[in-house]
Amino acid sequence: MGAVTQARDIKEIEAQLTKADQIAIISCNTCVRFCGTGGVDKLDELAHRLRMDGFSVSDQILVTAACVRDYTERSRLSSGITKVIALTCDGGWTSIKQALPNVEVIKGNETLGIMIVSPSKGVVKLMKTFEAYNNRVGDEFRLLTGEPETERVINLEVEK
C-alpha cells in the first residue's frame, strides 16, 4: 500500500508561511487518506484552518497518488503560487518538488514508515520504519482517522 504518516503540528507549518504567500495544498486520496492525514476532508480542514489564521490558500488539489509524478506535473497551479503544502507522504513531497522546482514545497505530514492495512478490522499497522520512528514499529492506528489503537488489533508480530 504505502506509507504511514502523521500530521505535522499546524504551528510548525504556519511558521514556514507568511501572510503574503499564495498557498496551494496538494493531497493524495490513497495512503494518507487511510492514515487520516490527507484526502479531500483533510485538505478542506487544513485550508480552512489556514484561512482562519489569516493565510491565503488559493488552490486545493486532490490527486490519486502524488508519488506518481505525472499527477503532480499536471496539477495546474494558479499563477502566483509561492508555497505548496504537500499533504502527502515524503514520496509525494519529493514528487511535488521535482514537478514544481520553482516553488517551495512544505511537508504537511511526517512519514513514519510503511504499512499493512485491514479494512475489515479498520486498522493500519506500522511495519517498517524510518530511523526516527524505530520505537513505534508495530503501532496500530484507526483506519481513516489515524487515531492510535490502545490495544493490539492485528496479532502479527513485527521485529523491532
Binding site: 504505502g2 508519488c67 506518481v68 509524478r69 505525472d70 514520496g91 519529493t94 521535482q98 510503511i114
Partner: peptide
C-alpha cells in the same frame, strides 16, 4: 527487500 519510498514517472 524493501528499501524505501520512490516516485513513478512515465518518463
Amino acid at each position: 527487500k524493501t528499501i524505501g519510498l520512490g516516485i513513478l514517472s512515465t518518463e
